[in-house]
């Protein structure tokens, strides 16, 4: 949580997850479809095919005084350094897991990296919501299996399809709500166990 010079409160939300799991697609869907949030520009550092090289960023204003600065990270392994930079000062994370069975290892690796960067704070002072994306795939992995493998059995989660936007808004609403609840009632609202 930060305050800017106009006194507005800012919270930083980061979409995290392995390469091609749907982070940018989900943010783009929110940007294009969710009404009621006053959105700023959509900044994207991507290659010519649209793959994120560094991050996407868009500010979303809930009220005149509260702004969510929403980022995605570049998922490819070699962008570890960039991901660490984007994570600075984060208040809430949406972990976008890919439900294809052949991506499970990449999910686990991505989650391990996230834990190594934020440690104990995950699920406490840093809210965490899990998006089990691409659940529309015919061979999509089962939700409980995925959560168990990721060690995220207690984290709030949604099965989503970022392409169609299914449950994307609910995921986003959950993380914004968790962040606000944590800051309103810091002691009682630690929910997701991320250990």
């Amino acid at each position: 949580m930060k305050k800017d010079t106009q006194g507005r409160i800012h919270f930083k939300i980061v979409f995290w997850g392995p390469s091609l799991s749907g982070k940018t697609t989900a943010l783009r869907w929110i940007y294009d479809n969710v009404e009621g949030l006053n959105k700023g520009g959509f900044t994207s550092v991507a290659d010519h095919t649209g793959r994120t090289l560094f991050f996407d960023y868009t500010p979303m204003q809930a009220t005149a005084q509260v702004v969510f600065d929403v980022y995605t990270v570049a998922g490819q392994r070699r962008h570890r350094g960039q991901r660490k930079v984007i994570l600075t000062g984060v208040d809430g994370i949406i972990f976008v897991a890919d439900s294809s069975p052949d991506q499970m290892e990449a999910n686990i690796e991505s989650m391990a990296e996230l834990r190594s960067f934020v440690g104990e704070e995950l699920g406490h002072s840093i809210s965490l919501v899990v998006m089990l994306n691409k659940q529309d795939l015919p061979n999509a992995m089962e939700k409980t299996v995925m959560l168990a493998k990721l060690g995220l059995g207690n984290a709030p989660n949604f099965t989503t399809c970022a392409l169609t936007g299914e449950n994307v808004k609910r995921t986003f609403r959950q993380v914004t709500r968790d962040i606000l609840m944590y800051h309103l009632y810091p002691k009682t609202s630690a929910k997701a166990s991320a250990s």
Partner: peptide, 12 residues
């Protein structure tokens, strides 16, 4: 302000 934001999000 945080409560107002919470209320706004519930609406959406």
């Amino acid at each position: 302000e945080l409560r107002a934001a919470l209320g706004e999000l519930e609406k959406g």
